[in-house]
Structure formats: structure tokens, C-alpha cells
Amino acid sequence: MTVSVIETTGEDHRIARLAALAISLMWIDAALPSPVPGIKPGLANIVTLVVLRRHGLVSALWVAALRVVAGSMLLGRFLTPGFVLSAAGAMASLLVLWLLSWLPRGWLASVGLSIPAAFAHMAAQLLLVGIWFMPGLNLWPLVPGFALFAWLGGLVNGLVAERLLRNT
């Protein structure tokens, strides 16, 4: 009988550790009472930002993917609409972060990355709701409110991420 051994590298351990951190922040996020469904600070994105700036896009992609899949399993919403929304938001914000990574280094710090990512997150989720979950419903009256909170969340998360990056 052959015993297969999975070799893990130091990077795997680092990604697992960071994903676990992101998942715990996602839990705090889910536990916070929210006045309107859909308005959340998105604390786990702080981890995505820190990983992106310190270890690059591939690591950030891994951490975000693990967080969305494992986190939603732990919260009991794997493959529910909430999971689909969370995955779409994560993909859209990573796409924007990837596009922004083409800008020359030094132009933007965490805040400049975090706000566009938060807007992309919100836009992808609203689009998904408007096209797939509740087609025909007029979501426009909600857009300014969501945009305001995305801006605020992006700003605060960006500041926290920048602070973590400079102090650790």
C-alpha cells in the first residue's frame, strides 16, 4: 500500500493562517447587527488588502477564496444566495484590485485600493440581485445608500489595513 503524503510549504501555512484570520473577521461581521440587509463593514477585506500588499495578488486570491468557501460553510450558508453574493463581491473586488495593480507602485496605498474594491463589491452584488435574484425590481433608490456605506467601509478598512502594514 502506498501512503500518499501531502507536502505543505511554508506559504501554504501562511495562507491557511491568514484565511483563518479572515474567516474570524467574517464571523464578527456576521454577528454585528446591521440596520439594512447588505450593509456590513466587510472587516475580512482588511486581511485581503494586507495580504495583497505584502504577499501579492495570488496569495490574496487564495485567502479570499478560502475565506468565502470555508467561512460560508461555517456560517451554514454554503451555496445559498448569500454565498453567491459573497463570492461575486469578492471576485469583483479582486478584479478591481488586479486592475489597480497595473498602476505604477507608490501611487496608491491601502485606502486608494480599498475604496474602489468596496464599490466593485457593492456593484457586483446589486447587479446580481437585479439580474438574477429579483429581476424587475427597481434597485436604483437603494444605490446611493449602498454606495455611501461602501465608500465609508472602504475608507475605514483601508486605513486599518495601512496602519497594520506600517506597524507590523
Partner: peptide, 24 residues
């Protein structure tokens, strides 16, 4: 903690929110 580009993005984002509010 903010670089010049961050200011630009933050102000641009705020302007976008303001335009959305005005329009909607």
C-alpha cells in the same frame, strides 16, 4: 496614512456618491 493618490480616490468616490444621491 494617505498618499496623494488615496486622496484623489477618496474624493472621487465621495463625488460619485454625491452624484448618485443627487440623481436618484
Amino acid at each position: 496614512l494617505l498618499r496623494p493618490g488615496d486622496w484623489l480616490v477618496a474624493l472621487g468616490g465621495a463625488a460619485l456618491v454625491a452624484v448618485l444621491m443627487q440623481h436618484v
